[in-house]
Every structure is written in structure tokens, then in C-alpha cells.
């Protein structure tokens, strides 16, 4: 990141050097004004560049540093942790939690995305036709997204409480069996996924709705003149024309869902056992969740998570670039 101002400076330098050749004096004058505006640009960007180095690059570098040393809490204070190379990564991959956490991350992420997207899209199509109150109701859908995650998570935790939760009392009122949503290994992951789906619907709705607004109404008019029903219109017009927006919505959803800690931690702390432990939860638990912080494996898991997030991230960037190229 430091290379940016340095880069700009050196390019300016080389241009200045080129300008000293007696080739084109008018061009030289123009370049000099350009370079002074470049200095202004660098000046305005400087706080951000300093910020990125201090508060992004440095903590990330420290995180890598943590993952290749053996940091105990004592070594943390004294700063004499032993260098162990990739030992922490080897231990993480060999750990019995690893396959569970990977699988849970997969189920949690894809389960959340699939339902958030489907429900969000259905609601976006529903709200597309304006009717009385449609704007107000659509605005109300934003509420879950704006609440602090900890608020939503604790509300869901109480709703899914085994003995006193509203969900179980509705189920038993209809003659069902009480379900230990958060305390049974079979349902803990499903429970946190349900809460996360609920949280993600507003985001999907807003983006897909704005994508729908960009489809010209004439296309639908033409289709209905040709006798296409609502179902046919959805599959032949809405779905294909919304594909670029959908792809970006899903990828952003993936990137956000991979990171989720708050919801799961408040509802189940990743338990019982490892039943709802995702990679992010695993990392959080190792570092901060127990009385004995174990930063080195936590950092290794965290770096693994970055790699996964970046893979989807680059996919997102490619998609967005392609979309810009075509539009």
C-alpha cells in the first residue's frame, strides 16, 4: 500500500526527466501543471493511505505474524514467541474441528444464501407492482437489517428457547413435539441459519428490487400483449435480465455470510460441542471465547477464512468488471 505514493512520485520524476529533453516545451508546461494537480490528489488521498497502512495493513501483518509463531498469553505480553513456521496451519488442518467447521460454514453459508435470495427475489417481484402502502411496507422490511445483530440474535434465542420460546409453544399447540432448537446438536445449525436468513432478506430485497427497477416496463407490456402470463414473464424476462444483479447479490451475500460471528455466538456460541461452529466462530472462540486465549491457531483459521473470502471476492470483481464492459 505504501507503494502508491512512491509510485506516483517516481512516475512524476521520470516524466520530469523526460521533459528536460529539448523535445517539446509546451507539453512540458502542461505536464508540470498535471503533476502539481497530482500532488494535490496525493495530498487529499494521504489520510486514507496512512489510515490503510496503519489500520489495515499493520493489523493484518500482525495477524500473519501471530499465525507463524507460538503465541501463548505469556509470550504475548513478553513478546518472545517462538517461530514455528506453518506448524499452526498443520495443526488446524489436522484438528478434528476442521472438517466439522468447514462443513458447517458450507451449510450455513449456502443455506442462508439460497433462502435469502429466493425469498428476497419473490418479495422484490411482489413489491414491483405498486399498490397502496407498497412503499411503506417495503421500508418496514428494512427493519431487521438495521437492528444491531446482537439484538436480533438475542430475540431469536428467546423465541427458540426450548421451554418458554414462542416457536415451541406454537408447535406444541398444534400437537407437535417440543424441539430443543439451540441445545440439540441436530438443530443448532439450522436454528442459527434460520435467524441469519431472516437477517439477510432485507439486503437481498433492496438490491434485487433496484435491479428490477432497471428493467424497462415496455418489455413486460410487450410480453403481456403476446399473452405471456405472470409465471412465464418471470422466467422469460425478469430472471434472465436480472442475472447480473443476482450474481453480484449472491456473491456479496457469500462474502458477508462467511464472516458472520455475532449471530451464531450469541445464540449457541458454536455449540453444543462443535455443532454450529463455523470457521469464523472457531477462530473467534480460540482467540476470545475461552478463558485461555490461543491466538496462533485462531489467526491461522482467520487467514484461511481470508483466503476463502478473497476467492469469492475476486469472482465478484470479475463479474462486476464484465458487467461494466458490457453496459
Amino acid at each position: 500500500m505504501t507503494s502508491i505514493p512512491a509510485d506516483v512520485g517516481s512516475r512524476d520524476g521520470s516524466r520530469g526527466a523526460a521533459g528536460t529533453t529539448p523535445a517539446a516545451p509546451p507539453a512540458r508546461r502542461r505536464r508540470r501543471t498535471l503533476s502539481s494537480s497530482q500532488w494535490a490528489a496525493v495530498g487529499f488521498a494521504a489520510p486514507l493511505l496512512v489510515y490503510l497502512v496503519l489500520f489495515y495493513a499493520y493489523p493484518l501483518w500482525r495477524n500473519i505474524d501471530l499465525s507463524v509463531h507460538d503465541y501463548t498469553i505469556r509470550a504475548f505480553v513478553q513478546g518472545d514467541a517462538e517461530f514455528v513456521g506453518l506448524q499452526n496451519y498443520v495443526e488446524v488442518f489436522g484438528s478434528s474441528t476442521f472438517p466439522t467447521a468447514l462443513w458447517n460454514t458450507f451449510v450455513f453459508t449456502f443455506g442462508s444464501i439460497a433462502f435469502q435470495f429466493t425469498i428476497g427475489l419473490a418479495l422484490a417481484v411482489f413489491f414491483r407492482s405498486s399498490f397502496r402502502l407498497s412503499n411503506t411496507l417495503r421500508a418496514m422490511f428494512l427493519v431487521p437489517w438495521l437492528l444491531p445483530l446482537i439484538v436480533s440474535a438475542s430475540t431469536w434465542a428467546w423465541m427458540l428457547n426450548s421451554e418458554n420460546g414462542i416457536v415451541n409453544s406454537v408447535i406444541t399447540a398444534f400437537g407437535g413435539e417440543q424441539i430443543n432448537w439451540l441445545t440439540s446438536p441436530d438443530t443448532a445449525l439450522i436454528s442459527v441459519t434460520i435467524a441469519n436468513i431472516w437477517l439477510g432478506i432485507p439486503f437481498n430485497l433492496v438490491i434485487l428490487y433496484s435491479g428490477l427497477q432497471n428493467i424497462p416496463g415496455e418489455v413486460y407490456e410487450a410480453a403481456s400483449l403476446d399473452g405471456a402470463g405472470a409465471w412465464r414473464q418471470f422466467w422469460s424476462i425478469t430472471f434472465p435480465l436480472l442475472r447480473p444483479v443476482s450474481a453480484i447479490t449472491i456473491l456479496l451475500g457469500l462474502i458477508y455470510t462467511l464472516k458472520v460471528v455475532d449471530v451464531i455466538w450469541v445464540m449457541t456460541t458454536g455449540g453444543p460441542g462443535d455443532a454450529s461452529t463455523t470457521l469464523a466462530i472457531w477462530s473467534y472462540r480460540e482467540a476470545f471465547g475461552t478463558g485461555q486465549p490461543d491466538f496462533s491457531p485462531a489467526a491461522a483459521v482467520g487467514n484461511l477464512l481470508i483466503v476463502i473470502a478473497l476467492v469469492f471476492g475476486f469472482l465478484h470483481l470479475r463479474l462486476q468488471n464484465r458487467q461494466e464492459a458490457t453496459s
Binding site: V8, L60, F288, A299, L305, G313
Partner: peptide, 27 residues
């Protein structure tokens, strides 16, 4: 102001948004 290296900076910012908070917290 057409900052040189602007595309790179934009790219870095997009990448920065993808870093999980738990990793930042440890750092």
C-alpha cells in the same frame, strides 16, 4: 483529481471490505 494508481486503490478498498472482522479483531 484523477489520482494516479486510483484503480489499484479502488481494488484494495474492495478487498479490504472482504476481510472478516474477526481477523481484524485479532490483529
Amino acid at each position: 483529481l484523477h489520482l494516479r494508481g486510483g484503480r489499484t486503490l479502488n481494488f484494495l478498498l474492495l478487498v479490504a471490505q472482504m476481510i472478516p472482522a474477526v481477523v481484524m479483531a485479532m490483529g
